Computed example of a mutant assay.
Amino acid sequence: MKHLKLIFITFLSISIFVSCSSDDTVNIDPETLSPLEAYEEFDIAYGSDSEQVFDLYLPPNRNSDTKIIILVHGGGWTSGDKTDMADIAEIIKLQLPNYAIANINYRLADEDNFAYPMQINDITSVVDYLENNQDIYTISDDIGFIGASAGAHLSMLWSYAFDTESQVDMVCSIVGPTNFTDPAYLDNPVFQELSSAFGITLTIDFLEEMSPYHRVTSSAPPTILFYGGEDPLIPSSQGMDMSDILQELNVTHEFNFYPSEGHGWGGANWIDSVIRLKGFIETHM
């Protein structure tokens, strides 16, 4: 997603007030954090691991109905950083100025720490942190997700299977894996990353357990999907099959397919994606 900055840099303006915290609790006097003013806080710790941090962007003139968009980066579950989603955060600030943003890091998988359920647990911790401090930040407990690649997988999986309080208003998948039992995915080179990240014998039951396609229900939140037809990592069937099951379950959704694009894109198609995502968020959040 780093290439997005080249497209939108001329449109972006940044007004930043910074406060850094490494503590698990908010050490802010709520009377000094005016909801009339924009506020930004970086590397907020939501756990004891150094990777369990997120950046928070709060809009001016917010109130208890101000909703939060959570950004989840990609990187094959083993790499990546919240900075990869920084350009999307800036686009949201410009195009959707009434929304709060949480741009998160999560613990990366390695040979001793498997991605699932560790990274799902991290998302739960972020959501709990925001909910526990919503009065201080002057935000609601309604959230939306925008995830890219592996982050899109995590966003969908959490929204479909782990949102026990029905807090998610919408979820966006940008080239995210959806179905790990799809033969087209099993034969794809990225599956080797999956085997490494999850570090166990991948049974069909386990693959289904961590597949949004197999966990989605008719109560799933509105979902918007973006996929490229020439993606070398994510077969186009991942997006198409997800759209089909959402249609079968009568879940509000939108499927956007760019036949000539790969694992991410720029130019006119990215501008089209931004416009479509903006409209979807405004409609469903």
Rank of each mutant, 00 (worst) to 15 (best):
E165N: 13
L4S: 14
I224V: 15
P30Q: 08
A152T: 07
D24V: 10
C172E: 02
Y57Q: 04
P222I: 12
W77A: 01
I200W: 08
E41V: 11
A220N: 04
S50L: 06
I101Y: 04
I281F: 06
L6Q: 14
D29Y: 14
Y213I: 14
L157I: 06
D23L: 11
S196C: 11
G262C: 11
G199V: 03
N133T: 14
F114N: 09
I88S: 03
S48T: 08
W158K: 00
P35E: 09
F226W: 10
V126I: 07
N269C: 07
G151N: 09
A148T: 13
N121P: 02
E230F: 03
D163S: 04
G266C: 03
T223K: 00
I234N: 04
T25R: 08
T32E: 15
L108K: 11
A161W: 01
E282H: 15
F11G: 13
V126D: 01
D135F: 11
P117L: 02
K67Y: 14
L202G: 11
T203G: 03
T10M: 08
T66H: 10
F257R: 08
F280H: 00
P97H: 00
E230D: 11
D81K: 04
S48G: 08
Q134F: 12
G262F: 08
T223R: 01
L154Q: 01
G239M: 03
